[in-house]
Write a protein that binds this DNA or RNA. Sequence first.
DNA 1: TTGTAGCGCAGT
DNA 2: CTGCGCTACAAG
Length: 846
Amino acid sequence: MFAQIIVDVPAKGTNRLFDYLIPPSLITTVEIGSRVEVSFGGRVLQGYVVGLSRESNYEISKLKPITRVLDVEPPLTEELVSLARWMSDKYLCHIAAALGVMLPGALKGKAERYVVVNEATVSSADSSLDESLVQTSGQDTMQAIMTFPIQQSILSYLRSKNKVTLPELLDTFAEDIGTVKQMFESGVLQEVQAVRDRLAVRKVLTVFAKFGAEHLREVAEKLPAQAHKQKDTLLAIAEHDKPLRVTELNELVPGAAGAARTLANKGLIELKEVEALRDPYAGRKFVRTDALQLTSDQQIVFQAIEQAVVASYHEVFLLHGITGSGKTEVYLQTIQSCLDLGREAIVLVPEISLTPQMVERFKGRFGDQVAVLHSRLSQGERYDEWRKIKRGLVKVAIGARSAIFAPFKRVGLIIIDEEHESSYKQEETPKYHARDVAIRRAELNDAVVVLGSATPSLEAIHETDYEQDGTGRFKLLSMHNRASGGLLPEVHIIDMRDELKQGNRSMFSKGLYKAIEERLHKKEQTILFLNRRGYATFVMCRTCGYVAQCPHCDISLTYHQKSHAMRCHYCGYAERELKRCPSCDSEHIRHFGTGTQRVEEELYKLFPSIRVIRMDVDTTSAKGSHEKLLTAFRNKQGDVLLGTQMVAKGLDFPDVTLVGVIAADTVLGLPDFRAGERTFQLLTQVAGRAGRHLLPGQVFVQTYMPEHYAIQASSRHDYAAFAEHELEARKARGYPPYHKMMLITFMHEQVPPLIRAASSFADELRKRGAALSMRGDSQLPCLDVLGPVASPIPRIKDRYRFQCVVKYRMDTLASQLVAETAELFEERLAKEKIGFSVDVDPQYLM
DNA sequence: TTGTAGCGCAGT
DNA sequence: CTGCGCTACAAG
């Protein structure tokens, strides 16, 4: 039998199948989806089995065998393997990269090299040494006598330590390199390679009783008085009647760990290392909740989705529900239906809104059937949650983007909450969009996809046949009322230009100031939102306007409070805080502190007694701090919750009646065709935090562009008006969703060769596009190549960047054309060392 | 990606 | 002539 393997080397030359022999001993364990150890081009690495066959086209005598299977059960399924191939086509990434992103970090095995003693040769080597002592004379004998103890000490060194690397050995026996060499030549020592996982399965020392409880009690009673520890321990074990962790035992009987060892020696119990799953939510009680009575809106939506789930009919629903309309309850109940059918469900949530509150709702309803995957878990915890899924111990996976790869076997329902969030697009290779992967995965499983949002992306709304031109693939479901029956908050747009004219130079308008003051009186709470973008923490000289920049990246350095350093966001370059301006020597150089810090200071100035809880990168970096701050706010230990994106989404506090947006238009100024969409989404989301329960809410939006349609529409809670306007604009300019897009970036240390290569690449692509249009599938050009132009960040890590934007109609053809052209240029780009990357459906054109 | 073979150049 | 660095190339 032969296995077709993708080796874990994401590179052009290795992005293909390699045949390997399956040794007879492994024939029953190697499956499609297995992770195996293979030797490949003089080294050992991990590979993924993506196919099995009885024949090989490769010369069989040259095939190498699979040396080891790395997991008890294959970590991937056939379905995930086929999904990886699809991703590789769609996103022009290496299959190894696509497979890699599906596995938890713990399973990225890397080869380790170390020196081993070939025990079989040792005795013969010793005896040959003895012989040489007898047979030879003079210098040879002297040498043998000299090296013999050295050999012995090398051997005992290696036997005492495990996994000694060659450099380590040479370092330790630096004086005797000659002897070490000899030992390698004679075969006594060997360097071997083996794949080792980044992380081991956690083992816990566990007590197993070897006799029944009755017998143990009897023995315990007979123990001498001074052995009371042993007696207590034994009784505790007898009491428990199940295998017990030593740590638990120690809690019951302090000092039991020692006694347990003695008892084990007496043969009464056994101590064994047992595989354990770390539970990040261990010891936390979740209050069980039952299904709520659905509102009529919810009921209609629920029935539509449930019907498809029950019928196992692949369908994509776009659930447009205003903030507070109760989307989560609909999710919970549809998931229940899915589980009732014996199928599993995946719930994707943007990282930022995967709050404890959210987890609680799912754990509360489905208990320990839920696995949670988010970035704040340690690698070990993440691995264990993943294994729960893999082993079928849970039926629901909730997590951020990469949870779409949860290794379930029969996915019946995939829910993507806040579908419009750009964080569903991975910015690193493989640059996949979880929404598209979800739809593909659902197709493969006859599963249902629910995309939920209060502000659907234009891509999604376009797919619902919004314009009734028959192009839609999604079914639109809507919920226009808040589940609580409450009203959407009243939104006031405040023209900051007027404020300035009236002499108000503070960052708070009079209206917002008054509103905050009022909440303080009424003991109600306020959320203040500050968009991070635009309020960068750069360092500027107030005398000459000098801005500290990264010497490698053409981007401003960011000031870091903690280390008093200025850091580059892109390459990590850091230098110490400046006391004087390097350009004009002025002392008036200072950082424009994180926007939130400035706002906080100002708040304390305006309202000396105010209690502000600030949430930004600085205050939430420690593990669990995010949760702590939110709990404090919930317990009304703060009057104001001030923060960046983190406070914009998903939070639900009953006493929040005021939301203030300090500067609504910072995003609008960015050179991005999605700027309007982002602004609308953000404002709508933030506004949705106010007045979610009994108390009515109020929102103040401060802006310098009050007439902008995104701001206007969001203030009226009018998604339809916004969508109509925005779609019109996109259509006119040929942007998504009417055209698809690809961003091709070229990178090099020097500009001229970079421009030359990028230009000829663009020309070639245009030529091919034109040739294809000529063949007449469509009258319109199927491909429009813009650029090359300098990227918005023109240099990163000393490499200049130029980019081409490709707009196109049919995605497979365009990907193919780009792939072909890339292949054609492969040699040239490699030779000139020009970096090249493709982003399909980019979220940001930079 | 990485190990190696092949090549040229410098240093002994 | 050895040794090191660079490049090109292949990997089952």
